[in-house]
């Protein structure tokens, strides 16, 4: 369990605590207004200047001696902000964590607040001009998003029931999309995303600039080297290029620096060689979210 579980998990994982999904919590902190303000022009989030700097050419800016360090510190404290006076247009307190299909399905069947909607993914829209209805949002965020035509598919039902959400997640996961759950803002939870990389801005920020907008899962993948037949199917499933086939050994290897523990590769293996194990059971990985 990470620091967010300690502070917002009530003894469980942060995203398993029912209170973080509740309408009462949303009302208490007037989430509807906050999220409306945030989502109206969300695509501007990387363009806006914060303390005189936007994210444009972030990779170069982070390399600048002093400014780079200040920028990194600012970005990290913004993303993880729990302050009362947060700024919606900077996406303060907005970050996510990768979760396996099983946890995503528990969220959708037991925890998510109604109404539940399935809308177009923001990242694929802004990075690829691709409208793909794979984002599952819920609680007051649903009503906010329904007002924004660019995220709402016109040719199909947007509001879905729990059962449909559970089925859709399975479909997305098997397609190779990674489930993630989002604080928006801390501690309110209202989204389960199905991401790809580099389309997803969160993966881009962490993998290239080491800014932690996306935590790794509470699990790690485990390869049973004896069971692996070297069929390579799993290699094509991994969005993070964490699996590689090694011809001389006729099996795959896992790069744990790249692996987020999403479990998506499991869907490809017909030999039962890939399993998810709780991260904390491995001393070497404990705390490496």
């Amino acid at each position: 369990m990470c620091q967010w579980c300690m502070s917002h998990g009530a003894g469980k994982k942060w995203y398993m605590n029912a209170r973080n999904y509740s309408d009462e919590l949303a009302e208490e902190s007037n989430m509807k207004d906050y999220l409306t303000e945030q989502w109206m022009n969300f695509e501007q989030v990387y363009i806006r200047k914060i303390m005189g700097f936007s994210s444009k050419d972030l990779g170069y800016k982070l390399k600048m001696p002093i400014i780079g360090r200040v920028l990194r510190w600012r970005a990290e404290s913004m993303i993880h902000s729990q302050k009362k006076k947060r700024n919606p247009v900077r996406a303060d307190g907005h970050f996510g964590q990768v979760i396996p299909l099983e946890d995503a399905q528990i969220i959708m069947s037991e925890l998510a607040a109604e109404p539940i909607i399935c809308n177009y993914c923001m990242c694929r829209w802004m990075q690829r001009r691709k409208k793909e209805a794979v984002c599952i949002n819920f609680g007051v965020l649903s009503e906010v998003l329904e007002k924004l035509p660019r995220f709402i598919p016109k040719d199909r039902v947007v509001r879905i029931d729990r059962e449909t959400a559970v089925e859709k997640l399975e479909e997305f996961n098997k397609k190779g999309y990674i489930s993630s759950v989002w604080f928006q803002p801390i501690p309110y939870i209202n989204a389960v995303c199905s991401c790809e990389s580099p389309e997803c801005g969160a993966f881009t920020l962490r993998n290239n600039f080491d800014i932690n907008v996306m935590y790794k899962a509470e699990y790690i993948i485990q390869l049973d080297q004896d069971k692996c037949q070297g069929c390579k199917s799993c290699v094509a499933m991994c969005q993070l290029s964490a699996i590689r086939f090694i011809p001389s050994m006729d099996r795959v290897i896992i790069d744990y620096n790249k692996c987020y523990g999403c479990g998506v590769c499991r869907h490809a293996c017909k030999n039962d060689a890939l399993k998810l194990i709780p991260r904390e059971e491995y001393p070497g990985f404990d705390g490496t979210y």
Binding site: E43, I47, G59, Q127, N208
Partner: peptide, 29 residues
């Protein structure tokens, strides 16, 4: 990245459906 043009968002006819868009090459590195 494709985004609503900065500064014009408040002048849009329908603030929920902005019509001014441009692209920024954001991750130059």
């Amino acid at each position: 990245i494709m985004h609503e043009t900065l500064g014009t968002e408040k002048q849009q006819k329908d603030i929920y459906d902005p019509q001014d868009w441009r692209i920024t090459p954001i991750w130059g590195s």
